[in-house]
Amino acid sequence: MRDCGPVQARQWYIICRMVSKSRGLVHDSQNNLQLRGLVVLLISKAAGPSSVNASCQSYDMVSGIYSCQRSLAEITELIHTALLVHRGIVNLDELQSSDGPLKDMQFGNKIAILSGDFLLANACNGLALLQNTKVVELLASALMDLVQGVYHENSTSAKENHITDDIGILTWKKQTFLSHGALLAKSCQAAMELAKHDAEVQDMAFQYGKHMAMSHKINSDLQPFIKEKTSDSLTFNLNSAPVVLHQEFLGRDLWIKQIREAQRKGRLDYAKLRETISAGKGVTSAIDLCRYHGNKALEALESFPPSEARTALENIVFAVTRFS
């Protein structure tokens, strides 16, 4: 973390305390989920300072990364964590008596809203301190994309008991970019803007962030279908990449028929439905799509000079596109 005054240090202490209360937001038992800030730092180091623009040479640089780029990495993580906290809000209308006291859920929602807003406020303050209007514009548009993407995810049709949307893979990709790819893509572009790189380098950074985020999301969607040991009770999103592709191959009518066949006493048998989907072409097609986006991310990196940072970015892509 960059040097800061006592007030700012206190704010960061509160943030760390809040995040440590919910470690699942940033770390699970196997993987560090703070990927976005790391990618921003790595791509900043891979690009290095601009060779044609010396206007930012007065900035502090440590290990090949400007202090403003480090601040941007922190801001990106703050925005992402705030979104995760806000997503923890519970729909009280869907609660049953067995879920616990309603007052506790209401209190939890208020804390989630306030905590997320606090993180976003600090992110906005950090953006203002960067004193770069283009970077502010990029991150503001990323926030708008996030809100729009989450809205699309939560707005399902009134048919089929809100189980599944009638969307194709092109629509899925557009919505997924908004909710999962825009923040990383535009943060990578903003990191290049802070170092005064030209438009071509900025676009390559944007393309890497976009395609790496898409590949990462598809990999996450595939996990319930490719893990060797999967709990029979494990649920998965019926609007995830493998399922959307499965529906495209089948057609909407056959897909709804398969859902109804997997229902027992009003509840969906995910184990049976997972076997049905795995037997089709959706899973293999999703793996191919994941690798396609991974290759696009690697192509974007070819414009950066060889370095340890570039190799690390390549290894991140290899990690999310390896399935054997």
Rank of each mutant, 00 (worst) to 15 (best):
A205V: 01
T230E: 08
M214C: 10
I277Y: 11
A140P: 09
D203I: 03
D165E: 08
S20C: 07
Q189E: 15
Y292G: 01
C56I: 06
Y13W: 04
M144V: 12
L222Q: 05
G24S: 14
D145A: 11
I15T: 07
D145S: 13
G251N: 10
A297C: 00
A190T: 09
A309E: 04
V147C: 08
K227P: 01
A319Q: 09
V52D: 12
F236P: 05
K110R: 09
G108Y: 06
V39D: 00
D104E: 05
M18S: 10
K159G: 11
D166C: 08
D165M: 05
L178K: 15
D221V: 11
R264M: 06
T321M: 11
D60W: 03
L92W: 09
L119W: 03
D28S: 12
R23K: 14
Q189A: 13
A128G: 07
T230I: 13
G5I: 00
A182R: 09
S215E: 02
V243A: 07
A195L: 08
L120G: 05
D165Y: 06
I43Y: 00
T156E: 10
H197F: 00
D99H: 10
E94A: 13
G181K: 03
I218C: 05
G24L: 08
V283K: 05
N161F: 11
S187Q: 09
T164D: 08
M61I: 04
P305F: 02
F107Y: 09
K110T: 12
A279M: 07
R274G: 00
V317F: 03
F323P: 05
G24K: 06
K296L: 14
T284W: 07
D253H: 07
A158P: 01
M204K: 13
C68E: 15
M105C: 11
Q8G: 00
Y292F: 06
E228K: 10
K159C: 09
G64E: 01
G100H: 08
T156V: 11
I14Q: 05
D117R: 02
L138Q: 12
L127I: 15
A309S: 13
V19G: 02
R274H: 00
C68P: 06
I167V: 15
K159M: 10
H216E: 00
L139N: 06
G209E: 07
H27P: 01
H162A: 12
S278Y: 03
A309I: 02
I65N: 06
G24T: 13
I111N: 04
Y59I: 02
G168K: 12
L127A: 11
N122S: 10
N125R: 13
L298W: 00
E248K: 14
S285L: 04
G251D: 09
S278P: 04
F236W: 07
A82Q: 03
R291P: 02
S58P: 02
E248W: 14
L41S: 04
E261S: 10
N315R: 12
G209C: 07
D145F: 08
V244H: 11
S141W: 05
E137A: 12
Q106L: 09
G294S: 01
C68F: 07
H80P: 04
Q207E: 12
R87N: 15
I169W: 07
Q96R: 15
C16V: 01
I75Y: 03
L143K: 06
R36M: 01
E308V: 15
V52P: 01
H211N: 10
A54E: 13
Q202S: 03
S187R: 08
Y59S: 09
D117H: 04
